[in-house]
């Protein structure tokens, strides 16, 4: 865990009338940042969803975004791999850099960006094809891969998503025949297969039973050594269990961002404390 800057340590204790404070409280300087969001504002048809957001996502760590429903977590996640591009009602200001490179720069190919920044959605969305083809989908888009190599990668990805054992005998079966929990792991495997550098997970366990949720959480922890993870969740325990850093968003703004342990045990703002202790919807 990174050292806390001394200047920030002198801040007041939680609940001690800091709730009026405006600007975000950012409680750490990440060692190596993978994604840099700077001054990001985003609006759907004039209705702002993100307001002047600045935060850094550290490399090879799990960063959790928490906040009440509608605060803009999914919007932020979708902005990170430019999924808003096709929606002409969306207007955006500000910059996002991936490993120092502005992702909105004209020379950045959006398909390449999305391969590097993979995304897993709230509800599993397997494609209407076989399990194998689902995982191979992104590989086929890139093309020029031998059959054998593709088989290897598919197996590796399913293995990495802790699904291989359950599906290795039915790779040709329709992906829609899997249980919801398996589908969600399949979707993760599909995303892993294209070897992303960043994995964005939007409430990946919200549709799952406790066992499947545990599997996903284990998976997230095990992936940390290879890539940067961003996790959106409504489950405080989950954020506390798997993430290294937690950002609390509210109404499109960053409220507080700190190492998970300190955010949960020692929030700086009353707003944050109210939310994580369940006093605010």
């Amino acid at each position: 865990m990174p050292e806390l800057p001394p200047s920030l340590l002198s801040l007041d204790r939680p609940g001690s009338a800091l709730s009026n404070s405006t600007g975000p409280i950012i409680d750490f300087a990440p060692d190596a940042s993978c994604l840099d969001v700077e001054g990001l504002s985003l609006a759907y048809g004039g209705k702002p969803a993100l307001r002047d957001l600045t935060l850094r996502v550290p490399r090879q760590r799990v960063t959790a975004f928490i906040g009440p429903s509608g605060c803009g977590k999914s919007t932020l996640l979708r902005a990170l791999n430019r999924l808003h591009d096709l929606d002409e009602t969306v207007s955006r200001q500000g910059s996002i850099r991936l490993e120092g490179q502005e992702i909105h720069a004209p020379e950045v190919a959006v398909d390449e960006l999305r391969r590097r920044v993979g995304m897993v959605f709230q509800a599993p969305n397997p494609f209407p094809m076989s399990i194998y083809e689902n995982v191979a989908f992104g590989l086929r888009l890139q093309g020029g891969m031998s059959r054998r190599r593709m088989n290897d990668i598919v197996e590796w990805a399913l293995e990495a998503a802790a699904l291989w054992g359950e599906v290795k005998d039915r790779l040709r079966a329709s992906a829609w025949s899997l249980s919801i929990g398996q589908q969600q792991r399949l979707v993760i495997a599909r995303t892993l297969a294209v070897r992303p550098e960043v994995l964005l997970l939007d409430e990946p366990a919200s549709a799952l039973d406790p066992i499947s949720t545990l599997k996903i959480e284990e998976l997230i922890r095990s992936l940390k050594s290879q890539l940067t993870l961003v996790l959106v969740t409504h489950n405080m325990q989950q954020a506390a269990r798997v993430s290294d850093y937690t950002a609390f968003l509210h109404d499109g703004e960053l409220v507080e961002y700190a190492p998970t342990a300190s955010l949960f045990t020692n929030p700086r703002l009353a707003r944050t404390e109210n939310y994580i202790t369940g006093r605010m919807a």
Partner: peptide
């Protein structure tokens, strides 16, 4: 066809027409 399917394909780097041909139409 659910938006989630399109997002999934786009999120893997598919272009719009690839998404339509390979995911939306089969679905």
């Amino acid at each position: 066809v659910p938006k989630a399917l399109r997002d999934g394909a786009l999120g893997l780097g598919a272009t719009k027409s690839e998404t339509i041909r390979q995911v939306v139409l089969p679905a």
